Deep mutational scan, measured.
Amino acid sequence: MGFKLLSKLLVYLTASIMAIASPLAFSVDSSGEYPTVSEIPVGEVRLYQIADGVWSHIATQSFDGAVYPSNGLIVRDGDELLLIDTAWGAKNTAALLAEIEKQIGLPVTRAVSTHFHDDRVGGVDVLRAAGVATYASPSTRRLAEVEGNEIPTHSLEGLSSSGDAVRFGPVELFYPGAAHSTDNLIVYVPSASVLYGGCAIYELSRTSAGNVADADLAEWPTSIERIQQHYPEAQFVIPGHGLPGGLDLLKHTTNVVKAHTNRSVVE
């Protein structure tokens, strides 16, 4: 069995187990497998329904001669939608809004960016022009300005110390501490036991640490421990890039980060 097929099978099995364990909360999309990078042309966006009122959005972007996937989250909030992270750029984010209108038909009224990198804030200006209120932590807003990236308009308070959590509509926002970046936030959907790890969490097929220019490698494993301790009931975990899975993604990420750190020390 090929690795790609095995990865998709694991996603399907995880979703099936969740649907059985929580039949009222989960209505997993039966329309197909989780979209992969090879299936999404740059400039297009796919939506994948995880649970009743919960979707991931998947886009792709060219970077350094390669094409990478990027995940975000959409959560229903009454007759409105909360968006977590842009679709990595203005063109993708405009396509995301169009796809949401086509498939869901509810307005996106608020959006949260989970850290300051372009795959999370690139497209904020498109959201703002569409009347979406954009939010991020003060740290993310400051770092985005320093980096020359787009800056969300509103500040999220109460997320300055490791372990801080605040309720934001249908989700809980959690600051686990520094990891992929010093400002990275985690998003949890309690009604569906869905954990969105953003770039602080890796997919299972990833074996290298990737972009760690703004990471705190020493603190990252401790931050992941905080996530595990705060959300032990999480059933569906979405990484910032690639295929979702279960809580095993947290341990896998820790292993990859520690291996990278150990290699760096040896070198």
Score class of each variant (00 low, 15 high):
188 Y>K: 02
27 S>M: 07
255 N>H: 03
156 L>V: 07
55 W>E: 01
209 A>S: 12
205 S>H: 01
100 I>H: 01
28 V>I: 11
12 Y>F: 05
262 N>K: 04
173 L>H: 01
39 E>S: 10
34 Y>P: 12
51 A>E: 09
161 S>K: 09
76 R>C: 12
203 E>D: 01
17 I>M: 15
111 A>H: 07
216 D>I: 14
231 Y>R: 07
44 E>W: 11
254 T>D: 11
196 Y>W: 02
222 T>V: 11
167 R>S: 03
32 G>P: 15
143 L>P: 02
168 F>C: 12
149 N>H: 04
240 G>V: 01
237 V>M: 05
241 H>K: 01
231 Y>D: 02
224 I>V: 10
155 S>L: 10
88 W>S: 12
125 D>E: 10
9 L>P: 08
140 T>E: 01
207 T>M: 15
252 H>M: 05
145 E>Q: 04
212 V>R: 08
24 L>V: 12
3 F>W: 12
34 Y>C: 10
267 E>G: 12
115 H>Q: 01
187 V>E: 00
202 Y>G: 08
170 P>M: 11
15 A>N: 02
24 L>T: 12
233 E>C: 13
125 D>I: 08
167 R>N: 05
69 P>T: 05
87 A>S: 04
131 G>Y: 15
225 E>N: 02
39 E>D: 04
137 S>E: 04
84 I>E: 00
36 T>K: 11
80 E>R: 09
250 L>T: 14
67 V>R: 11
188 Y>L: 05
136 A>P: 01
112 V>L: 14
129 A>S: 12
78 G>N: 11
80 E>P: 02
137 S>H: 03
161 S>L: 05
229 Q>P: 06
49 Q>I: 02
49 Q>R: 11
147 E>W: 06
18 M>C: 02
265 V>N: 03
262 N>M: 06
212 V>Q: 04
93 T>S: 11
244 P>F: 11
129 A>L: 14
190 P>K: 01
72 G>W: 00
160 S>Q: 13
50 I>E: 10
262 N>Q: 03
33 E>W: 09
174 F>Q: 04
28 V>G: 09
131 G>A: 11
219 E>L: 09
93 T>Y: 00
126 V>C: 04
12 Y>K: 15
17 I>N: 02
224 I>D: 02
253 T>A: 13
146 V>P: 11
138 P>Y: 14
86 T>Q: 02
18 M>K: 04
172 E>I: 06
55 W>H: 14
169 G>H: 10
246 G>W: 07
258 K>W: 14
148 G>D: 10
118 D>H: 10
70 S>W: 00
111 A>D: 03
227 I>V: 06
98 A>E: 11
73 L>G: 08
168 F>T: 05
62 S>E: 13
154 H>D: 13
100 I>E: 02
169 G>L: 02
109 T>R: 12
96 L>M: 13
81 L>W: 01
145 E>H: 14
94 A>L: 12
15 A>M: 15
243 L>Y: 15
257 V>D: 01
181 S>E: 00
189 V>E: 08
237 V>F: 03
66 A>G: 07
88 W>H: 07
243 L>R: 07
72 G>K: 00
85 D>P: 00
87 A>F: 00
260 H>P: 07
109 T>G: 11
114 T>Q: 00
121 V>Y: 05
167 R>Q: 10
237 V>Q: 02
3 F>R: 11
47 L>Y: 02
163 G>A: 05
188 Y>E: 03
160 S>L: 08
